[in-house]
Nucleic acid binder design. Sequence first.
DNA 1: TAAATTTGCTAACGAACGTTAGGTTGCTTA
DNA 2: TAAGCAACCTAACGTTCGTTAGCAAATTTA
Lengths: 206, 206
Amino acid sequence: MEAVLSRKEQIEKTATALFKTKGFSATSMRDLANELGIEAASIYSHIKSKEEILQRVCFRMAQEFFEAIDAAEAVDGSATERLQHAIAAHVRVLTKNTEASAVFLHEWRHLSEPFHGEFLALRDKYEARFRRIIRTGIDSGEFSVPDEKFAALTILSGLNWIHTWYKPEGKMKPEEIADNLSAMLLNGLTTDKLTLTESDSHLNTP
Amino acid sequence: MEAVLSRKEQIEKTATALFKTKGFSATSMRDLANELGIEAASIYSHIKSKEEILQRVCFRMAQEFFEAIDAAEAVDGSATERLQHAIAAHVRVLTKNTEASAVFLHEWRHLSEPFHGEFLALRDKYEARFRRIIRTGIDSGEFSVPDEKFAALTILSGLNWIHTWYKPEGKMKPEEIADNLSAMLLNGLTTDKLTLTESDSHLNTP
DNA sequence: TAAATTTGCTAACGAACGTTAGGTTGCTTA
DNA sequence: TAAGCAACCTAACGTTCGTTAGCAAATTTA
């Protein structure tokens, strides 16, 4: 666990921050160099091209999201529980890498082929993983929803907005955000309502 | 209702499509000219600058969203009903202008001052309108939600993802999308659950 | 028919772009 | 101590960028 970043990692980190705020195309190598306190040409001692930075960020984040959902799906339990785990895992990755997440979510279209295509394929696979959990929940009667793809996209969109307002120093911690999101989203899905008041809850057992 | 677009409107429409797919910065005036079948310099007979196009799109869409929520809020009824109207109105604007909406949602950061600041102020105002409806619902006991700002942002994020997958020729019509979204989102908000099965529903009356 | 407006052209501007070539410095390893 | 490497420099490359100037043709308006 080296807290010391290599120069290449520093470049990647600084570039990620710039890509988030200005966008990939609007960020010049001279902007990046200026932020690092060196000349633009010097950056090429460490990287092959501007796009390489974007590629590394996009595919590293993709990997992180996949590892997170792998762990969530490994849990056995109801579809509800697995979805809660998937949501929590997704939120954890997002909040731990706010800037890289923003780049991952918005700047991938500046990837050239074949990276652009590969990225989209990964994205589809990830969405399918969420959709499958929802499908399971529909089949088991846990969820009642008109369209599973629609549900998956709405859930993911709710999650993917977090990076625009989340601040590590803010009052809401990642786990809290995940719980609140799960509550908001799942109670819109579950047939068996979890938010009944205590005076009503006994009515739910039979 | 002139179906014939002025040259300026044609330019704006073509530019909007390009801004959506390639992004504002990655779209050159020569790209735009090429799409229109003219020379880049010729565009300047109709517009003052590249950014002017972005400004017009962003602020026109802002106006459309405000007019939509004005109408939704004018309806008297429960907070639930007003929120449903607001959602439906938002979806209607989004689906009627998919490309302009995408630009509105993602490219505004390329506005220069003072437009950038003005735009953000409008955006905050719009969010506050949603938040106020939710606040009313919390006060009336219709909604039960941990944080009203959090709820508003999650709802809006669910709505604002539509432009990425909505196709006018697709099977889901705008009103249907709005209904599904309302169902998904509101059932996560309402204390009084609407999706109880018929065999259970009588249990809820006392 | 004359004037005004719309629409487009060619040529070119200075600035900014991503990137390469070639060289220097200083630290680390054999 | 010599070799190797990491890090950065200056200078410059060819290209693309948004935009302006000045002019010409066509269409619309008076």
